[in-house]
Design a protein around this nucleic acid. Structure first.
Lengths: 131, 131
DNA sequence: ATCAATGCAAAGACTTTGCAGTTGG
DNA sequence: CCAACTGCAAAGTCTTTGCATTGAT
């Protein structure tokens, strides 16, 4: 858990991490991102990657996608949109052509404050169709 | 990974696990379920719990809910329904009053075979409102 | 009898954390 | 300057797996 701090610093690591993630239209795992950022900052550590991913998510600058198939994925696009995930290979892909069902915005639960939603459509991707 | 077997045996462990899960209207973790089943079968192991939860999910007898907040949860109710999850305490609750948006059934992705969907509404639960 | 399934314990995958040293504002 | 941040390595948490044994059919 990262505590709320008033004074936040834009370190080179944080900067580069954010840049690299936003550059992608895929949804890398922490590890994939680590390898990517490592090319520019060879001494960066996994700890820093995880800490910054959590922090940036908290600030609303990126999105953490918690989903099936263990390793978390991250998304540089915070605009609400749908994801499809392959139940065979766990590939996670944007679906920009389809709108998020508006019905979801209207959902109310007594006693709860609704803040968002996570919708993951499941299926078999084109590459896994044959197997 | 559990391979597809033609010859499946209904062991006491499998039986009791399924019974206990279906008895609940909550969504226990593997560990919570383990403790529960242990009361009736004191020698059961976590390995068996995990293996059976995966197997029963594959058979469509239960549902595995992969969601934010690490430990997986399991649901004895396989009828499609919505879940709300508290982003503070990770509590996961059914929302039976609200229908799953029908728009989700119509979603098509070129090249993919859609098999299902996972919708988790996020919010702050009644118990966490104050903090 | 046969082979799927179990218990156990060890290994694995992913993530978090403590700490001493750095560094951005 | 000094608290936020880092790298490193160790610890944690959850899940999977190998293997000898057991048990359902």
């Amino acid at each position: 858990m990262i505590e709320n701090s008033q004074q936040r610093r834009m370190t080179r690591q944080r900067q580069v991490l954010l840049e690299e993630l936003c550059k992608l239209r895929t949804h890398p795992t922490a590890d994939e991102l680590y390898l990517l950022v490592k090319k520019r900052l060879p001494r960066i550590s996994m700890g820093t990657v995880y800490r910054n991913l959590e922090l940036l998510t908290g600030e609303g600058k990126i999105r953490t996608i918690d989903h099936g198939g263990m390793p978390r994925r991250y998304d540089g696009d915070v605009k609400p949109h749908l994801h499809v995930q392959c139940t065979k290979c766990n590939r996670l892909v944007d679906v920009m052509e389809v709108e998020l069902p508006t019905q979801l915005d209207d959902i109310k639960v007594p006693g709860w404050t609704i803040t968002g939603q996570e919708v993951i459509i499941q299926g078999i991707c084109d590459q896994c169709q044959g197997s």
